[in-house]
Structure formats: structure tokens, C-alpha cells
């Protein structure tokens, strides 16, 4: 594989993270903001999987291949990614639930209008 292909996943991860952060900073809607946070988190999946990738590697499941017979990708980062997805689902669900309450209590989900807490 070329050098570009080796670097590309890392560039994608950085790009996705920064795009998510930009969306968060400029968001005009809290639901959109929670979505942006999920985008930031997707960058961590990309980075983790890129870290564990091996050229020509297959899935680290040994039900149909003999251990050591061929290269497999790193199972540790896959476990980390799974855990990360669970964490992300929890955070997203909770923040969306709180956003529903904000919409009920304030009548808006625009951060520009939610500025009671200041100073």
C-alpha cells in the first residue's frame, strides 16, 4: 500500500473530529449539537480501527481459521471501539433526553436564546 493510504485514515479521523467540533461551536440547535458530538466520537472509532489495522489481516475470529495461520487485525482496539460505541449511545441518549426537557421548559433549543446562566 502507498504511503498516502497509510496516512489517510489518520487524516480522516482528524478531519471528522474537527468538523464535529466546528459544528458544535457554531450550532444553532441543541439536537444538531448532540449530533455533532456523535460526529466527534466517530472520529475516535476511525482512529482506533486505523491503529489496529494490518495489511492483509482478517477479522480476529478464530472459529474458522487456525490461530497463527494468517494475520489478523488487532482485536484489542475492536474491543475498545465497541466499548466506545456503548458509551456514545449512553451520552447521546441522555443529552437528547435533556434536550427534550429544555424544549419543554424553555420553548426553544437554540443555544443563542438559552443564555440565562452567565456572568
Amino acid at each position: 500500500m502507498t504511503a498516502v493510504m497509510h496516512v489517510l485514515p489518520y487524516l480522516v479521523a482528524a478531519y471528522v473530529f474537527l468538523v464535529g467540533a466546528y459544528g458544535l461551536a457554531t450550532s444553532r440547535n441543541l439536537i444538531h449539537a448532540v449530533g455533532c458530538l456523535a460526529v466527534c466520537q466517530s472520529a475516535t472509532y476511525v482512529l482506533l480501527l486505523a491503529v489496529g489495522y494490518r495489511d492483509g489481516g482478517t477479522a480476529p475470529v478464530f472459529s474458522d481459521i487456525r490461530p497463527g495461520s494468517r494475520p489478523v487485525v488487532d482485536p484489542v482496539v475492536q474491543a475498545l471501539t465497541l466499548t466506545d460505541i456503548v458509551v456514545g449511545a449512553t451520552v447521546t441518549a441522555l443529552l437528547l433526553a435533556l434536550t427534550v426537557q429544555i424544549a419543554k421548559r424553555h420553548g426553544t433549543v437554540d443555544p443563542d436564546e438559552l443564555r440565562e446562566l452567565r456572568g
Partner: peptide, 30 residues
């Protein structure tokens, strides 16, 4: 959850801290 300010503070807390946590995870991956 019936209090307007409480849910608002909770969301601010959640967004900023979670973003920090994802930064941390990126660092751990590196």
C-alpha cells in the same frame, strides 16, 4: 427535570465534558 435552568446546565456540562473525554480517547489511541 422540571426546572429550566437545571436541564440547561446539565446539557452544557454534558457537551463540554464529553468532548473532553473524546479528546482523551484520541490521545489514548495514539
Amino acid at each position: 427535570i422540571d426546572e429550566a435552568r437545571a436541564v440547561q446546565g446539565g446539557v452544557t456540562f454534558g457537551v463540554v465534558n464529553s468532548l473532553g473525554a473524546y479528546f482523551m480517547l484520541m490521545g489514548i489511541a495514539l
